[in-house]
Design a protein around this nucleic acid. Structure first.
Lengths: 221, 221
DNA sequence: TCCGAGGCTGAACAAGCGTTTAATGTATTG
DNA sequence: CAATACATTAAACGCTTGTTCAGCCTCGGA
């Protein structure tokens, strides 16, 4: 039984897994339109073998999605069980390890689809629970609509990074750790400013909108 | 001279312009990977004619980019000279007219490139000038770094819409006016809340960060 | 009236794509 | 050892793509 190993001795990964990893790397670096031939070349196999193992390119994408989703899940689980003392700052330094993963995630998010929605919904749920905790602890102000505030904040945070990466994408290979370092360096201050002190001086716009939604103007419809 | 018109009498647009408009519509609806044949069919011409007029598909993209850029410029100019009384609300109602334009812009922004960067930089500049005006008028709080705050706010606002559209993109044809109406309905309240009242109760995080950047910890480097 | 330039078409071309297929090697099983 | 199953490959297939080409039609100018 134990001698019935099909794992090649020179590599510690199955050929199938090597193809999958090569595909994730290629999708991340060159976009989701990358050819099966390019993936095969990177994995050191023939194009036919890729199809032989995964049936089709679409299914290969699906397998990559599932794998990335699971790796993200494991990373998240580990970061919960091993809470780092520095919080975000430390995790920013660990980003280099996952830059390939992030590149793939970025491409997947650009395209939309199941993986995007699933991860985004998970992110929204996380933000909402964090905010709820903050409200209970007294560090975060309560909201008139906590669920929508969480969605809005998640869309802001994630979307701003998406925009930053997209705009900085002229060179072929976007360096995600660099982009995220830039993001930290440039935007933490204005974000903390606005989140702490607000943006508007007076309440006229907010109060005006609250009146507006409680008594919407009649229109032709 | 005046009789030397080449414009077909049944249509008020040149064939070239009709192809261009069809291309913008197709790019917006079906993505930037849409085929030349689909564009030709929509314009009611043969695929060869598209190339005959524009040389290549890449150049057609460029012409579309330039055209969209100019239309955006003219809309902006008009909205400055004819400031609507209702401000944003009125412009939200005018969005239906430009939903095709917005679809193209969305696709272009997803891909990155010259048009994206140009329009994004223009947007950042607009936000910065609006904020500056608000600060002078006393409606917007001053910032320790106005330029970066403007960039952050622009990335947030634009990125959040980008995320919303991307996530809501399972059906083939994203209805942009609907997405933007959703955005208005769901996120104006939390946005005004946070911008008016802030998100955090106390200043510990902001003050902590201000100390951190004025006296960064020594690290191995 | 004739001519020629240019808008325009339908068919074809060359390249690239994902995928299939037949064949070869290789290891495990009976 | 023979047989079976599987990993693997090179070549080719069918399809779609952007683009080209030869010829048609139309219309303004001499």
């Amino acid at each position: 039984m134990s001698s019935r190993r099909k794992v090649p001795p020179d590599e510690d990964l199955t050929t199938r897994a090597r193809i999958r990893d090569a595909a994730i790397a290629c999708f991340g670096e060159k976009g989701l339109g990358v050819t099966v031939r390019a993936i095969a070349e990177r994995a050191g196999v023939s194009p036919g073998l890729v199809i032989h193992h995964f049936g089709s390119k679409a299914n290969l994408r699906k397998v990559c999605d599932d794998h990335v989703r699971q790796v993200v899940y494991e990373i998240k689980k580990e970061s919960v069980s091993h809470p780092s003392s520095d919080g975000m700052l430390r995790s920013l330094k660990e980003i280099d390890k996952y830059s390939g993963l992030l590149a793939y995630l970025f491409r997947a998010m650009q395209e939309g689809g199941e993986l995007s929605r699933h991860l985004y919904e998970a992110m929204v749920a996380d933000v909402e629970s964090y905010l709820e905790l903050g409200v209970r602890e007294g560090t975060v102000r309560p909201s008139r609509d906590p669920a929508r505030r969480a969605r809005w904040l998640a869309a802001n945070g994630f979307g701003s990074i998406l925009v930053l990466v997209t705009m900085q994408q002229d060179t072929e290979n976007p360096d995600f750790s660099q982009v995220l370092r830039d993001w930290e360096e440039q935007y933490v201050l204005p974000a903390l400013e606005v989140y702490t002190e607000g943006l508007l001086v007076d309440r006229t716009m907010l109060d005006g909108y609250l009146v507006y939604i409680s008594d919407p103007p009649e229109e032709e419809r």
